[in-house]
Simulated assay, not measured.
Amino acid sequence: MSVTTKSTTNFNLFKSDRPYCTEEHDMFRTSLRKFMEKEVEPYFNEWEENGLTPRELYKKMGEQGFLCPQVDPAYGGLGLDFGFNLVLAEEAVRIGGGIGGASLHSSITVPYLEKYGTEEQKKKYLPKCVNGDILTAVAMTEPGTGSDLASVSTTAVRDGDNYIINGQKTFITNGINADLIFVVVKTDSKAVPARKGVSIIMVEGDTPGFSRGRKLKKLGTHSQDTAELIFEDARVPVSNLLGNEGEGFYILMDKLQQERIMCANSGYVIAQEMLKTTMKYVQERHVFGKPVSSFQNTQFEIAEMATELSLARSYLDDLAIKHMNGEEISTQASMAKWWITDMARRMSSRCLQLHGGYGYMEEYEIARRYRDVAVMPIYAGTNEIMKNIIAKNLGL
């Protein structure tokens, strides 16, 4: 006797739960998603047109407890684990890469202050970073210097109880909205090796001699403010030095593992969103009297992308857990950053192609995602630099 059963599967490519997530993470996600649906989604296209996310959004996020969830309660934070930072980034990028300023502030810049700041600095700045009164930025890149941070030319010369800063930065995320900028400077231009002359100084937004240059027009992430920053004899108290003189390069390197996991995870979420919208489109769109999803080429494309997405998720989940456990995984983080962001960029082209002519229309989300994802293999260290790091750590 034969038995016929209906084929079923519990495989869900688009689930948001992750192995490190607890009920508390899920509650945080639910609350944050409701906030985004009310305060961001209705206005996001307008912000894309304006090329700027209103500063007030970050203040509202701070008031609701969504910024810097990891900060110690002694400084006004919630003392939560890295999983909450990942949730924050995921829910922001699901709407669009242009509102990533909250994640950069919470998960990349503020951790420098948490680990290397003096008690006085932390008491002064951290509570305001948590409640949204302060939004931060980190200013590394210069017109002539990108990944080679040891070669920055912005200088900070000691003058009594102050530093006099001169130079220019570019491509600075949160450059327009930031109230506190972590500026990478040279305090010793004669240091050998050069990286030992690099320091980080925190510059407040109203510092005389500091000004914001152009709000840069970009290919994508239009609602994310990216700007030039100019320092012309900007006088900053020595007390705003982060760590010690000459430690800037090492401070930056110490947090790059977390930054690259964050970047890779954002690439994964964008890829997930692109595939979700594409699957919906090919099922609804009919060509030659049948849905586009019924053609073998479409099915093969979707199957391949779904497989890559699943592999990325498994790798990322493993890395996140190891990072939360304090393990040193800089090589694997570099692998994740280059492969997943590169996968997302490839996927954007494949998904746009499956949309046909409509994919080229601004009214379809894939057009924006196609633009936004293009920068991911470039920032947080180019993917070519990631491969150099991997090769070096393999002993080559």
Rank of each mutant, 00 (worst) to 15 (best):
Y116P: 07
Y125R: 10
E362T: 14
I134D: 06
R345Y: 02
T298E: 05
Q296V: 14
P73H: 02
T154V: 06
N12K: 09
F249S: 13
R94V: 13
D372E: 01
G197M: 02
T277N: 06
I261Q: 03
F288A: 15
E363P: 07
M386T: 11
S314M: 12
I385A: 12
L88V: 09
S293F: 10
P42E: 05
H355W: 15
E384N: 12
A234R: 06
M202P: 04
G62H: 02
R260Y: 10
L256Y: 11
C351R: 02
M343Q: 07
N45W: 01
I390D: 06
S348R: 02
K387I: 15
Q296H: 13
G101K: 08
L275K: 00
R260M: 14
E46V: 13
F14S: 05
F84M: 11
S211L: 04
G359P: 08
N162M: 13
T136F: 03
M343T: 08
D254T: 08
Y364H: 07
D81G: 14
V130I: 12
G79P: 00
G289T: 11
T8C: 04
I181E: 03
R235C: 12
S334Q: 12
K387E: 08
D133I: 12
A320Y: 07
D372I: 02
G356I: 08
L104N: 09
D26N: 15
M274R: 01
A336K: 12
G160I: 12
R18D: 09
S199L: 05
E259H: 13
